[in-house]
């Protein structure tokens, strides 16, 4: 059993001449919610893409549940919720979940039951057979969450999960994420909603220009800057003025 489902060591990624990640290292402990923070263009999305096997590092090692991210075995244990994703507009939520579920070779009966549960969980049971083209942004985001959970993953990678959600939905999502954590899931969350990160994360990492700036237990990081909100702490850190 791997106690650190995500391990990145000295990862460097280039896009042509520009360096997206420069010697990045981090570890995510099992069963925890890991917050991944950074300004725009810091390399957060690139890091996530490396974890998913969509981008290849020039050097360094990346392990997801002990396997290379390009190994399908690793991806079987991951759920991914992208930022501002869209899904096939000509399909219904039911069909989308069936399609993604089929990719994991989930037995049909198990899949059907799981889909029904997921649709109820995200509040889309009533509209399960409506084409996605008729959905609002928030509803599409809920479909995204459902598809990220369709394989009952051990690790969830979420990129801006609260994007497009109203405050009530955000609260429900927060509750869900904490519930998943209580069930032993590991969550890797990249977000600009620092208030949300502050409420749910056990550990955070802050990157800037492809490099790690600060990482550690949230309470330890915040403990050293008492009386300061995470937002203020983040701004000072990425501006280079954090204590």
């Amino acid at each position: 059993m791997v106690s650190e489902p995500i391990v990145i060591e000295n990862l460097t990624v280039r896009y042509g001449k520009s360096v997206a990640l420069d010697g990045l290292s981090l570890k995510v402990r099992e069963g925890e919610i890991f917050g991944f923070l950074g300004p725009n263009g810091a390399g957060k999305t690139t890091t996530i893409k490396v974890l998913l096997g969509l981008v290849y590092g020039e050097s360094g090692t990346v392990r997801v549940h002990g396997l290379s991210p390009t190994d399908c075995g690793a991806r079987r244990r991951i759920g991914y919720l992208p930022e501002e994703a869209a899904y096939y507009r000509f399909l219904t939520p039911l069909e989308i979940l069936r399609f993604y579920g089929a990719l994991f070779r989930i037995p049909r009966r198990v899949l059907n039951d799981r889909i029904a549960d997921l649709l109820r969980l995200v509040g889309l049971a009533e509209v399960a057979r409506r084409p996605l083209a008729t959905f609002s942004k928030g509803m599409v985001q809920k479909v995204g969450l459902a598809q990220a959970l369709v394989n009952d993953p051990d690790t969830l990678i979420l990129d801006e999960p609260t994007s497009g959600l109203d405050p009530l939905s955000r609260m429900e999502l927060r509750r869900l994420l904490l519930d998943l954590k209580s069930r032993g899931k590991t969550l890797f969350v990249s977000s600009h909603e620092l208030s949300e990160i502050e409420l749910i994360c056990d550990e955070v990492a802050i990157i800037r220009s492809g490099r790690m700036v600060r990482t550690g237990r949230l309470k330890d990081i915040m403990g050293s800057a008492s009386g300061v909100s995470l937002e203020r702490f983040f701004i000072e850190t990425v501006s280079g003025g954090a204590s």
Binding site: G53, L54, G73, Y80, Y88, L103
Partner: peptide
């Protein structure tokens, strides 16, 4: 264009 490629290839699909 639909931004579904990343989601798809994040699944166990080579």
């Amino acid at each position: 264009d639909q931004r579904t490629l990343a989601v798809l290839l994040a699944k166990p699909v080579t």
